[in-house]
């Protein structure tokens, strides 16, 4: 049972990193990024391929963050000059392009079979529960650092401007500031976080394959920040916990509710999360950590 909880906690921590990035982009800046998983994919494959080459983890994680951020740069430059809703479409398209590229470029990524045998992180601590707990502690430490950085950004002139961009972009221009530069930086920062999350994910699962990086992941992160509270740093964490509670909790429904097969269960889980999302938007649209108006 401990192993199960550590496993869930690791996934929560990885998702929290993704949610913190998306919260910076959407919650604070108003960027509708439907392609978050694409940056996670870039990070995961970067870490996997570099681990295969024998790079030490700190270096390959850094490379994963940088490559994911660089992938965001041209995307941002091209589409952030367009209207918000176009960016949503372009970003969704981007993540699908990334997935198709890693599927097709077999010489590099081994196609649909993916890359197996990615070594576990923190292997020097031993194996089994000890090693998993060490990974969890490392992830918690990374999350704490990221949350501190986010709080610093939120309570700064930079944070003020990105929130102003979210509230009214034309007014920001009218005051002599160019929103595009801020949006590109926010997009790259969020992508770097997704890249790090992807690297953790690759090492934790032990292999990467294209079907792990479907748009569903992006929308699960969206559900998390909507339920947790858009624009709140704490909302990213709380929302991820709620999401995982519903996803994993509904797994146990099978013990209580009869006549549900293994296959049907997958649909039921999504249904439960969908219902939760509807109830949240109906009864607590500002999310659990609430109050969209205050930080």
């Amino acid at each position: 049972m401990e192993a199960y909880f550590v496993a869930i906690a690791i996934i929560v921590a990885i998702y929290t990193l993704l949610a913190l990035g998306l919260n910076l982009q959407y919650g604070l800046t108003g960027l509708i990024n439907f392609g978050h998983v694409g940056f996670m994919c870039v990070g995961a494959y970067t870490a996997a391929l570099l681990a295969e080459q024998g790079w030490p983890a700190p270096l390959s994680f850094l490379a994963a963050a940088i490559l994911a951020a660089l992938a965001a740069y041209p995307l941002g430059l091209v589409s952030l000059k367009l209207r918000d809703d176009y960016f949503a479409i372009v970003s969704l398209g981007f993540s699908e392009v990334v997935r198709i590229v890693v599927t097709s470029e077999r010489w590099l990524t081994n196609g649909v079979q993916g890359i197996p045998g990615i070594p576990k992180l923190m292997g020097f601590t031993g194996s089994g529960l000890v090693q998993a707990s060490a990974v969890l502690l490392l992830l918690i430490a990374v999350n704490i650092v990221v949350i501190l950085v986010m709080r610093r950004i939120v309570h700064s002139p930079f944070g003020r401007i990105i929130e102003a961009i979210r509230d009214n972009e034309d007014a920001v221009k009218a005051l002599g500031k160019e929103p595009v530069g801020f949006k590109v930086r926010v997009l790259m920062l969020g992508a770097a976080l997704a890249g790090i999350a992807g690297a953790f994910y690759a090492h934790y699962i032990g292999y990467v394959a294209p079907d792990q990086f479907i748009p569903l992941i992006t929308f699960q992160i969206w559900m998390a920040i909507i339920m947790g509270g858009v624009g709140r740093v704490s909302g990213a964490l709380v929302g991820t916990v709620i999401l995982m509670a519903f996803l994993e909790g509904s797994r146990f429904l099978r013990d209580v509710v009869p006549f549900i097969s293994e296959v049907e269960m997958a649909s039921v889980r999504l249904g439960v999360v969908g219902l939760a999302l509807i109830l949240f938007t109906l009864y607590r649209p500002q999310g659990l950590m609430g109050d969209f108006t205050r930080r």
């Binding site: 509230d167 920001v172 009218a174 005051l175 002599g176 969209f292």
Partner: peptide
Amino acid sequence: SGRARAGMVRTFQVPREFAH
């Protein structure tokens, strides 16, 4: 934005406050 930096700033008919 460049014209605003040059010293000429406008307001809007329907106010565009940063609401939050």
